[in-house]
Simulated assay, not measured.
Amino acid sequence: MNARDRDGEGRARNARPRDGLGRPLPYGTPGVERQPEGVVRAPGETVREAQRLLDAGMPFHAHEVFEDAWKSGPAEAAPLWRALAQLAVGLTHAARGNAVGGARLLRRGAAALAGPAGAGTGAVTVPGPPYGMDLPGLVRWARELAVRVEAGAAVDAAAEAPHLTGGPGPA
């Protein structure tokens, strides 16, 4: 029987390598470097690092960056980061071929970002676009992708990656 993988503090951690969509690979297989957990970043750094990972077709890893922000940042910003993590996980599931889960998470994240009025202002209360992000554009992107995923569209995570701050996506 194999002992469970543990981190330096004795907590259970899966040390198996993972692919770009976060799927576990067999031990000894080269994988994508995992995101370190518990990293505290400034909001702009969070947005930049998540965008880099999204552009690279690694939305699972981008979700981990958003999760760190929601757990380590101010409470009033947590709903924003949680909604963005849901979008990243929705894209992950869609790219893995899980249409039901992908569409559900994309819609859940979009609803949280849209807020009660549906205008893309519900997740956080900071002046202007939160941390420079285009929330209405992200809401549109997520809702449109959810429809296409449910219709059976194949999803390439890098090609479908949203551009968090609006404007053109990756080249």
Rank of each mutant, 00 (worst) to 15 (best):
P79A: 10
A119P: 10
L145D: 06
P136L: 15
P79W: 11
R108S: 11
T92V: 11
R140C: 12
A117Q: 14
A112F: 10
T121S: 15
G102P: 02
W81A: 06
G128D: 15
L135C: 14
A94W: 02
R140K: 13
A77M: 14
E144G: 13
A142N: 01
R140W: 11
E76R: 12
E144H: 13
N98W: 03
A103F: 12
R143W: 07
A99P: 06
A88Y: 02
A103K: 06
A94E: 03
M133L: 03
Q86P: 10
G118Q: 04
A75D: 12
L113F: 07
P116T: 12
G90I: 02
A95V: 03
V126M: 02
G102M: 02
L80A: 06
L87S: 03
P130S: 09
A77T: 13
G90C: 01
R143A: 11
A95R: 01
P127S: 13
P130F: 06
W141D: 10
M133H: 04
L138A: 05
G128I: 11
V139K: 05
W81P: 15
A103M: 10
L84P: 08
A88G: 05
R82P: 14
Q86H: 15
P129W: 03
R104T: 10
H93E: 09
L106R: 12
A142R: 00
L84V: 09
L106I: 07
A83H: 14
A75W: 08
G101V: 01
A112C: 07
E76Q: 14
A119K: 13
A112I: 02
G97V: 04
D134I: 13
R107W: 09
G102L: 02
L84F: 12
G122Y: 01
V139T: 06
L138C: 04
M133K: 07
A114F: 07
L145K: 10
L138N: 08
A123F: 00
R104C: 10
A146Q: 03
Y131W: 04
G115N: 05
R104F: 05
P129M: 04
G97F: 04
P136F: 11
W141N: 08
A142G: 08
A114K: 06
A146N: 12
A94S: 01
A75M: 07
A123K: 01
V124H: 08
A83M: 09
A114D: 09
V100Q: 13
A111S: 11
P136W: 11
V124G: 05
P116Y: 00
A146Y: 07
P136C: 13
L91A: 04
L138Q: 09
V89C: 07
W141P: 03
V139E: 04
P129C: 04
G115F: 07
L105I: 02
V139M: 00
G97H: 05
A99Y: 06
V89N: 09
A94K: 00
V100I: 15
R143M: 12
E144S: 12
R108I: 08
A75E: 14
A142Q: 05
G90H: 00
W81D: 02
Y131G: 03
G118W: 03
P129D: 10
G115E: 03
A78T: 14
E76L: 12
A94V: 05
P130G: 13
A99N: 06
A123Y: 06
G90M: 00
P136I: 14
D134C: 08
P127G: 12
H93P: 09
